[in-house]
Simulated assay, not measured.
Amino acid sequence: MSHRKKMSEVNITFAVEFFLLGFSDLPNLQEFLFVIFLVIYMSILIGNGLVIVLTKVEPSLQTPMYFFLANFSFLEICYTSVTLPRILTDLWTQKRNISFLGCATQLFFILILGVTECFLLSVMAYDRYVAICKPLYYPLIMNHKMCVWLVIGSWIIGIPILIGLTYQIFSLSFCGSKKLEHVFCDIPPLLKLACGDISVEEYSIYVDAGLFGMFPFLFIFGSYAKIIATILKIPSAKGRYKAFFTCSSHLIVVTLYFGSAGISYLMPKSSHSSATEIVLSLFYTIVTPMFNPLIYSLRNKDFIVAMRKFLPKCVGLVST
Results as ranks from 00 to 15, higher is better:
L50S: 06
L50W: 00
L50T: 03
L50D: 00
V51Q: 04
I52G: 00
I52K: 00
V53T: 11
V53C: 05
T55I: 09
V57P: 01
V57R: 11
E58F: 10
E58S: 15
E58K: 15
S60M: 12
Q62L: 04
T63Q: 13
T63I: 13
P64L: 15
M65N: 14
M65D: 13
M65E: 15
Y66W: 14
Y66M: 07
Y66C: 11
F67N: 12
F68C: 13
L69K: 05
L69A: 12
A70D: 05
A70K: 11
F74Y: 12
L75C: 09
L75W: 00
I77F: 02
I77M: 10
Y79R: 04
T80G: 04
T80E: 09
T80W: 02
T80Y: 02
V82C: 12
T83K: 04
T83R: 04
T83E: 11
L84D: 02
L84M: 10
L84S: 06
P85F: 07
P85I: 09
R86D: 12
I87N: 03
I87H: 05
L88T: 03
T89C: 09
D90N: 07
W92F: 10
W92A: 09
Q94H: 08
Q94L: 10
Q94G: 05
K95F: 09
K95C: 06
R96L: 10
R96W: 04
R96A: 08
N97I: 05
I98F: 10
S99N: 13
S99K: 14
L101Q: 15
G102W: 05
G102S: 10
G102H: 07
